[in-house]
Nucleic acid binder design. Structure first.
Lengths: 304, 304
DNA sequence: CGCCTCATGAAAGTAAGTTTCATCCGTGGC
DNA sequence: GCCACGGATGAAACTTACTTTCATGAGGCG
């Protein structure tokens, strides 16, 4: 681990399954086979003996044990019990749509809508469950006290970064977002102690964002990573790691649901920061709302 | 009655704990000691090893096994798993959060997270419920067949518009987004029959977006509005109206949850369009994914 | 090409769970 | 009083499950 002990969610309180699927890409191939079996049917996995599970995953018991350790369990029995508990807690999905499932080829639009909404809602809920309030708190503290906040993100995560920047700006925090790597690097180089850099990357492997975050860290800024994968490279250049909990699907890259989850996290941070000084934040929000008022039509009867 | 298997005993419906305490009196003294421990704290019992539990009950492992059989289990592991499941189920559901509720002033971050996630998830689900698949279908048809697609949006909705544009572009549709009203107007003026214009506005009162959509319609393009308010002005210039279902709160302007709902709708349309030609869309997606590959670090596995 | 690192499963080792069996104790008959 | 008898019980043998160790081999890197 790089320089200072990183603060991330070691507690995975909400969902073990969610936690495992987040860790999935960081596991070795054989362990991944085990993980997939476990995620696909936790209750069933809990019923199996270690030898049985190993056979089903076409690997050895040793690998299953290694998998247990990888996801933070002491050993197989503990995993088993946790899985059983987990499986019991999650109420049966009311109908046939599979959690994290892909869209079937012949699906009509109603099915598509139901599936997407289901997965989106789940991603949001599961993200919230596994978010560590303590880590959030510290991030909020850092942002609330920051001299300046840079938010980095590329591609789809760029929208989220930009959204976050805009939000912070609206409550009077000095925040920047850069659509371009070079500008971002330049900015990062100007950060210093007391500043905050936030890097957003679904996969956690976007080299541009990692590079910029690294730069920011080297300059003494507090670095925050927001990613779906708790052991991805971006987490190594971050002082604080916040994770989303979106499952991968093939057709609809996990990034789609992930983006919603990211926004939820951003909202949480935003409200947290705003709550640090309600009066001031509210005033700033009102001022900005007023500013766009002249661009609204028909102030009358339609609520907004 | 040796021949016909008993039908009743095997399923003990009302809960394992209840079942055990029911037949507690019929157990032998040593088994009763075990049973009492189990009933008193199922979760704890599930954590213990058989030897451990036996010691705690001041008896031998053999007796614990006998107890397992007495209550209808195959052996200790099964009891353990069932207990863990049982214990998990009986945790109180955490819902102190009010639907659509605002963040209370003294809220700690954990509450904030729970509330936001709850409202976000609800907005997504409710939006999906009230979305009319028939309207979506026609919008998808129009987009899939369009010569060109313009997506308009301002402020927070601008991100969504931009996201939609990028998505459509990635599957090979010709789509545009304009951060600036004047450019947008210019573009709208160049639309014609067979083209599609999508206007996104949470309130439905953003005059810039309305104006542009109006222009597009005058030129013969099919117009789509995405808003939270089905009777807002924007709906008057739209051929197709899609609505989100986010509730308003004071502190957290409804726009925050609304944005997630908007994205869900965008995702649905996107997948709908992509599904119109799976092969081509998949190919386009793969090509774009490949293009950014060199900006990812750590090849397949992600770790350190 | 040699070195290193890492993933992996075979096998050895340890702990957990299960069965067997001798003992104990109370009961009731002779 | 003595002796079956039967159920309850735990010690110990036994089996299975779990864990550790270690040799092997595949890939990456200089």
């Amino acid at each position: 681990m790089a320089k200072s002990p990183k603060i991330s969610a070691s507690h995975e309180p909400g969902g073990l399954i969610v936690h495992i699927s987040g860790l999935l890409p960081s596991l070795s191939p054989a362990e991944q086979r085990v993980a997939r079996l476990v995620v696909a049917d936790p209750a069933d996995a809990a019923r199996r003996t270690i030898t049985d599970l190993a056979t089903a995953a076409e690997t050895s018991e040793a690998t299953v044990i290694r998998f247990c350790r990888s996801v933070g369990m002491d050993g197989y029995p503990q995993l088993r019990i946790r899985l059983a508990a987990e499986a019991a807690r999650r109420v049966e999905p009311p109908d046939a749509r599979v959690v994290g499932g892909d869209i079937p080829p012949g699906a009509d639009l109603a099915q598509i809508i139901a599936t997407i909404a289901f997965n989106d809602a789940r991603a949001v809920e599961e993200t919230a469950e596994q978010l560590d309030p303590a880590v959030c708190e510290r991030v909020v503290d850092a942002i609330a006290a920051a001299g300046r906040i840079d938010v980095y993100g590329a591609g789809a995560s760029g929208f989220v970064a930009s959204d976050f920047q805009q939000k912070l700006h609206r409550i009077g925090r000095t925040a920047f977002y850069f659509p371009d790597v070079h500008t971002a690097l330049t900015s990062a180089a100007l950060l210093g102690r007391g500043d905050v850099a936030v890097g957003i990357s679904h996969t956690g492997t976007t080299s541009d964002v990692i590079e910029v975050l690294e730069q920011a860290r080297a300059r003494g800024a507090a670095t925050v990573a927001l990613t779906n994968f708790p052991r991805s490279p971006i987490t190594e250049v971050a002082d604080f790691v916040l994770t989303t909990a979106a499952r991968e699907t093939t057709y609809r890259s996990g990034a789609m649901a992930s983006r919603l989850a990211q926004l939820t996290v951003v909202d949480c941070l935003f409200v947290g920061v705003a709550a640090r000084n309600r009066a001031r934040a509210r005033k700033a929000l009102e001022a900005t709302a007023e500013a766009v008022q002249s661009h609204r039509v028909g102030g009358g009867r339609r609520r907004a």
